[in-house]
């Protein structure tokens, strides 16, 4: 396949996509589509696919992402660090050294807040959030990803705010005034009691459900 416009390299459970220089978007799209249809064994569902950031425009990247999503793959563009990391890795391979940093690569982005969120304080982020502390009544967390609270949650929490229905909310004591996941809203019962187990809220069958978990 000498005329392949798309090169796929796998590494650390992640697929890196590279385009041949001078490849047009139409060609790339067609080629990818064929590959996805034929080599279904190679593209396991849930694999993370990384696209180069600046070869195509944002809209075109989005279209490619959609294509991958249709085949059950998680696709996003590379952050500049990841692009650099790849070059790093290649260089490291040549000198036969095991790169230490590479484990960081498959960790998702997460905002860590190392304090108690008090009334009136708000966190808004595209990524997931880890709170080491409590979330007090009147505080708000709005996250694009999931929310993990190592403490008591009494505030308003919104996970998957950009539409991710697979987002979850976990807390040691989950007693929020309101829980929102993606486009669903649930409010606490009027008489709320403190639970002694960690709980997780997620969407099942179009409803927000809360279940105890081991932690």
């Amino acid at each position: 396949m000498a005329d392949d416009v798309v090169k796929i390299k796998s590494g650390k459970g992640v697929l890196h996509i590279n385009f041949l220089q001078g490849a047009t978007f139409v060609n790339v799209r067609k080629n990818l589509e064929e590959k996805l249809k034929s080599g279904s064994g190679f593209f396991l569902r849930g694999t993370v696919v990384l696209l180069p950031r600046d070869v195509f425009s944002a809209e075109e990247n989005e279209e490619l992402q959609k294509l991958f999503h249709e085949h059950g793959l998680i696709c996003r563009t590379k952050t500049p660090e990841e692009a650099e990391m790849l070059i790093h890795n290649a260089a490291a391979k040549e000198s036969r050294q095991i790169p230490k940093k590479s484990t960081k690569q498959d960790v998702q982005e997460m905002l860590v807040v190392n304090k108690t969120l008090r009334g009136g304080q708000e966190i808004r982020t595209e990524s997931s959030v880890l709170i080491v502390g409590n979330v007090n009544p009147g505080a708000q967390i709005i996250a694009g990803g999931s929310i993990d609270i190592r403490g008591t949650c009494r505030g308003m929490v919104h996970a998957g705010a950009t539409g991710d229905t697979s987002a979850i909310i976990v807390a040691d004591h989950l007693m929020p005034t309101q829980i929102r996941i993606a486009n669903l809203i649930a409010r606490s019962p009027d008489a709320i009691e403190k639970s002694n187990r960690a709980e997780r809220a997620s969407i099942k069958n179009g409803c927000i459900i809360i279940e105890p978990i081991e932690r």
Partner: peptide, 12 residues
């Protein structure tokens, strides 16, 4: 207590 919580946040 709510207001105290808010104030502690503001003091922080």
């Amino acid at each position: 207590v709510r207001d105290a919580d808010k104030i502690i946040g503001e003091l922080g």
